[in-house]
């Protein structure tokens, strides 16, 4: 498997088809994912710390629609919830970045496929809160 001479190995290998791995997407996607994860982790950790120091009545589950009220009321659960929301929207941001790439590349098939994924995620939000 491992050739002692890398140059020879390269020459023997078939020309790698680059299609399946759009090079600029491979740079953008990890950046988007890491930024989203970092923001979410900071908010969740900060919110949990606040929650631990000054616990409200209960850590009861709440819905997405309660989030603005909790944040407005300076409730640590609101901060944690905002972190969770950012975490859940990070994959969506990655798909949106991919859609932008496919539109730029005029790749209609993949622009359509990524659009369907975006619609599915939007439907998940809509169907959940209804």
């Amino acid at each position: 498997m491992n050739s002692p001479d890398p140059a020879e190995e390269q020459a023997d290998a078939p020309a790698p088809p680059l299609d399946a791995r759009p090079a600029d997407l491979e740079v953008v996607i990890p950046k988007v994912l890491r930024a989203g994860l970092l923001a979410a982790v900071l908010l969740m950790a900060g919110g949990l710390l606040w929650f631990a120091l000054r616990p409200p009545s209960a850590g009861a589950p709440f819905s997405l629609v309660d989030l603005p009220a909790l944040l407005g009321g300076a409730d640590p659960r609101g901060v944690i919830g905002a972190g969770i929301l950012i975490l859940l929207l990070t994959p969506l941001a990655r798909v949106v970045a991919s859609l932008a790439h496919f539109v730029r590349e005029k790749d209609r098939l993949y622009a359509a496929l990524t659009s369907i994924v975006i619609l599915n995620l939007a439907a998940a939000i809509a169907l959940g809160v209804v």
Partner: peptide, 10 residues
């Protein structure tokens, strides 16, 4: 999350 099943602390 929309259905209120997410316990934020958990």
């Amino acid at each position: 999350f929309g259905r209120g099943a997410v316990d934020p602390v958990l």
